[in-house]
Design a protein around this nucleic acid. Structure first.
Length: 315
DNA sequence: AAGACTGACAACCGCATCGAA
DNA sequence: TTTCGATGCGGTTGTCAGTCT
């Protein structure tokens, strides 16, 4: 007797999400917050299982997601973290603000693995590939696994000691001269990283969003939004919607050296994110906004530009 | 021009884990 | 303490655009 399926699969839709489904899900979460994923599809009027909704939200609809290729820095961080954590993608993702475990996992499998192999580094062990002694590989893997297990055990022990004596744990970690510092299974990669600072959580630790807690950044004054044609009237656009009230506030000033714009951020919402949402939320205005004329779309050449799948190009 | 192949990534599946009853 | 439902996580698969032949 197997485990019961997470949901009644009869009549449930599978496959790519449509814009309409995205809109329903976003509207629902904006009005109700994230709660009880199993109930979400029913309440939101979606023929999807809760799991699918959760995945869609966390991986693609969440407003605090960065899109596009990982930067060099991010890539290097992923490599460093993978060396320490192995395939624990969610842990790795939690140290890259705006990135999801799925995204990192895919990027690892499609880009980084190859890159490392090209450089003569075994992506599994992060050690130079021994070309002369292929049979040594399995042994190496075993050793890597052993090392990982030992590290895990150490982490657990350290965690325990941290609970009893947190200061000594931090002191220990401060002695490390590596660029990344693990504190209670959390790697502080950049002490100035806003995502690390804001509210003490990062992307993968996004708290339940309640409508009243959603803070929309100040309307970008000029060029912060890549979708300029749609950004210009984003507030009006939102007002047109019967969406929950938003609080337009400047809670966090980020001094972007590139454009010197002071913008508001909360949970990683920035001008671009918001503009994307702007496009997504109300597909009735879809034609009016002519979003496909915008440079944003050109960033995603793979996207199919029809109404069904336009959402994919928006983030 | 068309079919085959490849790469990238979105989405699914099933097991693990957590927490409430 | 046990059971069970909900959610999280990592591996795998499916789909589609781009490239090659």
């Amino acid at each position: 007797m197997g485990r019961q399926p997470c949901c009644d699969k009869v009549g449930l839709k599978k496959g790519p999400w449509t814009a309409e489904e995205d809109r329903k899900l976003i509207n629902f979460i904006l009005t109700n917050g994230q709660c009880c994923w199993r109930a979400v599809p029913k309440l939101a009027g979606l023929l999807r299982c809760g799991k699918s909704c959760r995945l869609r939200w966390t991986n693609y609809l969440r407003p605090d997601l960065k899109r596009g290729l990982l930067s060099e820095q991010e890539e290097q961080l992923v490599i460093d973290l993978h060396a320490q954590l192995g395939n624990r993608w969610s842990k790795i993702a939690s140290h890259l603000p705006g990135r999801t475990d799925n995204e990192i996992k895919n990027h690892w499998n499609t880009h980084i693995k190859k890159k490392l192999k090209k450089m003569g580094i075994d992506p599994l062990t992060h050690k130079p590939i021994s070309t002369t002694n292929d049979e040594a590989q399995p042994q190496q893997q075993k050793q890597h696994q052993l090392a990982q297990d030992q590290q895990e055990q150490q982490e657990q022990e350290q965690h325990q000691s941290f609970q009893t004596n947190p200061k000594s744990e931090i002191d220990q970690k401060e002695e490390s001269d590596t660029s990344t510092t693990i504190i209670e299974d959390k790697i502080i990669t950049n002490p100035l990283d806003p995502m690390e600072l804001i509210n003490g959580f990062c992307t993968d630790e996004v708290p339940m969003i309640e409508p009243l807690e959603i803070l929309i950044p100040c309307a970008p004054s000029s060029s912060t939004c890549s979708s300029s044609s749609s950004s210009s009237n984003s507030s009006n656009f939102l007002e047109d919607l019967k969406l929950p009230d938003f609080e337009w506030s400047c809670t966090f000033d980020c001094n972007d050296s590139s454009n010197n714009n002071s913008c508001s951020r909360n949970m990683g919402w920035d001008g671009t994110d918001f503009c994307n949402w702007d496009l997504l939320i109300n597909e009735e205005d879809f034609d009016k906004k002519q979003i496909f004329d915008t440079p944003l779309i050109n960033q995603y050449p793979r996207m199919v530009m029809d109404q069904e799948s336009w959402a994919y190009g928006l983030f």
